[in-house]
Design a binder for these strands. Structure first.
Lengths: 148, 148
DNA sequence: TATTGTTATACTCTATAACTATA
DNA sequence: TATAGTTATAGAGTATAACAATA
């Protein structure tokens, strides 16, 4: 691999991450459908689990989505009983989104689905390669500059 | 990591691939905009480069998209001068999509953009980790069962 | 009749802008 | 006036269905 033989598009990390990310996302989306969840629902539930009760506008900023979308997602999750809206008493404009036990359970099931998918996606890798992939992806996602 | 401490959602390969894939895709999309290209355009150009002239319906099947979308993308690329439509003489219903020199050049520029992005995305990895990531992603994308 | 490409239409996701209520 | 949430509307991307030309 020298200057006269540059890496072709399909061999770049960018291209491959995009391809595999789309594949993983599509399969995950399909399977969480059985729980009546969509990807943004899972993102919101995950945020509440890690951050605790959070105002809607804060959620919008943390997930990098429009405030109006948070309304839609929270509505859906409220119908499922996965979150509750709690009116903030000191500032009654604000609503804290709170994860319920049902929401916790759904999140647990989503994690199980993702772990199943991991097995399928990385079936072609030997244990060392799989571990190296995990480590690299972990470094990149735990690092700086990442939305949602 | 044992049975009582399962991998949480955000630590799964599925979740991380989805997150990084979306990030890489968004940045790539933004930058190819200066070439007046969209992601599907690049996918079509890339297919023509690797497979040579291809009928539209075949393109649709290979990319895993609806035939009507191939019409839209091919229209856009024809306006840019990146592909030509050649009517098949032995079966005049068919049109072969052919990559032009302009299309080749655009593809070359897309590859350069992707390589730049690779540098930025993997800046947090040491050389060994970067190489391990490349190898793993290469194995997974070169393997079986992948659309587009 | 079946197939290729096209057009017409509709659906999903998400954003922007206008609005309500509280501050 | 400014802010939190909501509602109304619009745009991008893509699919499905109806259609035209050719086989």
């Amino acid at each position: 691999m020298n200057a006269a033989d540059p890496v072709p598009l399909t061999a770049t990390t960018t291209y491959r991450l995009g391809l595999l990310g789309a594949l993983a996302g599509a399969r995950f989306t399909e399977r969480i459908g059985s729980l009546r969840l969509k990807p943004k629902d899972v993102a919101l539930l995950g945020l509440l689990q890690s951050d605790g009760p959070t105002a809607q506008l804060t959620v919008a900023r943390r997930l990098g989505v429009a405030p109006s979308l948070v309304v839609t997602v929270a509505d859906r999750l409220e119908v499922l009983g996965a979150v509750r809206r709690l009116r903030d008493q000191s500032d009654r404009r604000r609503q804290q989104l709170v994860l319920t036990d049902t929401g916790q359970e759904l999140l647990t099931r989503c994690a199980a689905i993702a772990r199943e998918l991991d097995e399928e996606l990385t079936a072609g890798l030997d244990p060392a390669a799989r571990q190296a992939l995990d480590a690299a992806l972990g470094t990149l996602t735990t690092g700086p500059g990442l939305p949602s």
